[in-house]
Write a protein that binds this DNA or RNA. Structure first.
Lengths: 227, 227
DNA sequence: GTCTATAGGTGGATAGAC
DNA sequence: GTCTATCCACCTATAGAC
């Protein structure tokens, strides 16, 4: 099985079809024959390019995450004050997911179904890049005195990212709540939510430290900020 | 197939086993024979109690969501100011999910894989109860002047719920970020995150309206508040 | 490289004894 | 009610012609 070497077209053709199908119906329900048909080739050919179904799936995920990381990273590189950069980060995230509607499904399913076993390195990479960048951003804002410093940056990063992530994963519920059509929220609504999420996060982080926790104990910070 | 009538024990025994397996590995990868084995009965017996695999899955989901709704609702009934009740709501949510670690997986997968087709009414019910209650809470706080009124209550509700939801769904990523063991975050960390999420949401909602959106346009509100 | 044909295995579902 | 035995469909993967 000459899995490597150079034949872009056919190979990518198969990967494209596989990506669509895996994203749409998951690993188990997608058959080799479906993929072959969708790619316009005989299903046996898949075994010329890939060792088995599992390997094909892994390569789909890898290619996918790599693209996603590239896209996300390029979007939030600029300078400026931490709150503006955080805002840019969140809006870029919404933008990216709106352009790749398969992404949340594919990744969330992988995490849920296989505990990310097919793409540990990829998911790690995403965590180490995306999450980490956010953490650093928040930490920086805290040290600059712009953000309240009684929040754990890692918790805050999860809360920030969660908004847009959940918006896409819980699509059926969101659709009902927002009374959107069967295709899910329109681009307008997605963009509006992206702005809202950025707003929400910045507001939570810039709130005066003493004010919000009237009922509650101070500091949900559990650990060192070096993370 | 006398699917109904009265035989609690056997039937529930099968449902229990099925729930564990479906939650752990999803619908497609779970086989009838696995369920039979896990339940300690012959797999053919499943067809005495349930019409087919699909029907069994539906009943698992229904029972599951019914329990979840009951649990969630009882937790956030009390009175008090809106911000305290919102806090109670979020912490109850975290508590519930910590006690039912299968819940996020089961529900998220159903939404992702089948667009909630197996449990439309259930998901609708969850949305109409949980989400709606949150929306009303936020709306009430806005009218009382406690929460800023330039946020769409429905968007704010999504952001609020998303935090804990994502925390469980993205477990592999969270695990890496928080440097937790393979079993996922400990109960302490879950509780801490629940408090954090409540804090985060209340802070975002109580922030002075003009302050947070220095860079941004006012109001991410898109539609009427009657929702 | 790409196809046809098919082996080998598994899963959902039924028939029928007890 | 519960089990044994089994059928049939379908899916992954391979063998081998072209």
């Amino acid at each position: 099985m000459p899995t490597d070497s150079a034949d872009p077209s056919r190979r990518d053709q198969i990967l494209d079809a596989a990506e669509r199908l895996f994203a749409g119906q998951g690993f188990a329900r997608t058959t080799i024959k479906q993929i072959g048909r969708a790619a316009g080739v005989n299903s046996a050919l898949l075994y010329y390019y890939f060792a088995d179904k599992d390997q094909l799936y892994r390569e789909v995920l890898q290619r996918f995450v790599a693209r996603l990381v590239a896209r996300t990273m390029s979007g939030s590189a600029g300078g400026g004050p931490p709150d503006a950069r955080l805002r840019a980060f969140v809006e870029a995230q919404a933008q990216t997911l709106a352009e790749h509607p398969d992404a949340p499904r594919l990744l969330a399913r992988e995490m849920i179904d296989y505990d990310a076993a097919h793409a540990v390195e990829q998911i790690q990479h995403l965590s180490v890049t995306g999450f980490r960048r956010l953490c650093d951003l928040i930490d920086e804002g805290q040290r600059a005195g712009i953000f309240r410093d009684d929040l754990d940056p890692r918790f805050a990063a999860i809360s920030t990212i969660a908004q847009v992530g959940w918006f896409f994963v819980a699509r059926p519920a969101v659709r009902i709540l927002l009374k959107q059509g069967p295709d899910g929220p329109s681009d307008d609504v997605i963009q509006a939510f992206g702005r809202h999420a950025a707003d929400f996060a910045v507001a939570a982080l810039t709130a005066p430290a003493g004010r919000a926790g009237a009922t509650a104990r101070r500091s949900t910070r559990a650990r060192s900020r070096t993370s």
